[in-house]
Nucleic acid binder design. Structure first.
Length: 215
DNA sequence: AAAATGATCCTT
DNA sequence: AGGATCATTTTC
């Protein structure tokens, strides 16, 4: 079954414009819920709907890689303009995909933590090293930052990628998450971050089966 | 040059 | 609860 570029399952979808990413980081994290993440790779197209995010708000945020304006080879992409990919490797084996927010000079990002698989599920399963696709496996395809990168084929080669271009981008297909369906919790695995560990900067869709951890 | 540290995932 | 596994960062 073929699909026109710019359309998903028959519905027209619009790529998010640069201005979207320049907003306040908490607003970006909130409004990325329900949006589509699209990767057009050589091996095929994969699409997932975002159901969980975390905001990392720059120099004053002890959990952020850019805390204290730390700028290194790894973090330099965060210091550029919003709307670019920040991809890094953790624990030597997993990748994390972040969206850079705010104008240049303000090193803030939103970590994408979980997706509901929408298209290219076979390819996602193959990349994840899974043989079959049961509903239970489908829920485990992209319910974590490392797993979604593996399923979507996102690695450091895509670090710095312009999300307003055609390879890797986010899109709005008209689906909206109601305020009453948005949960906020502390961020995951940042116990080292002092008082910042309690900030409610994780956003997830209430009762959604594709999140990394239930609300 | 060497040691420490993970924005994770999988198995027990 | 613990181990895998290694790039990046921090410390000597």
């Amino acid at each position: 079954m073929s699909q026109r570029p710019g359309s998903v399952q028959g519905l027209r979808s619009a790529k998010l414009p640069r201005e979207f990413y320049l907003q306040d980081t908490l607003a970006v994290a909130r409004h990325l819920l329900g949006k589509l993440l699209v990767h057009d790779a050589q091996e095929g197209r994969t699409i997932g709907r975002i159901v969980e995010t975390e905001a990392y708000q720059g120099p004053g945020d002890k959990a952020a890689h850019s805390y204290n304006n730390l700028c290194s080879k790894r973090t330099e992409i965060m210091y550029g303009p919003g709307g670019h990919a920040y991809v890094f490797q953790v624990y030597g084996m997993h990748h994390c995909f972040n969206v850079v927010t705010r104008p240049a000079g303000s090193p803030q990002v939103v970590l994408i933590r979980a997706l509901e698989p929408m298209d290219g599920l076979g390819l996602m399963a193959r990349r994840r090293g899974l043989k079959e696709l049961t509903p239970s496996i489908e829920r485990n395809l992209a319910n974590g930052p490392g797993k979604l990168c593996q399923a979507m084929g996102i690695n450091r080669e895509l670090n710095g990628e312009d999300l307003c271009a055609d390879r890797l981008y986010l899109a709005d297909d008209g689906a909206a998450i109601a305020e009453t369906d948005v949960c906020q919790t502390p961020r995951i695995n940042i116990d080292y971050a002092g008082e910042a560990k309690d900030y409610l900067w994780r956003f997830l869709v209430f009762d959604n089966p594709y999140v990394s951890r239930p609300s």
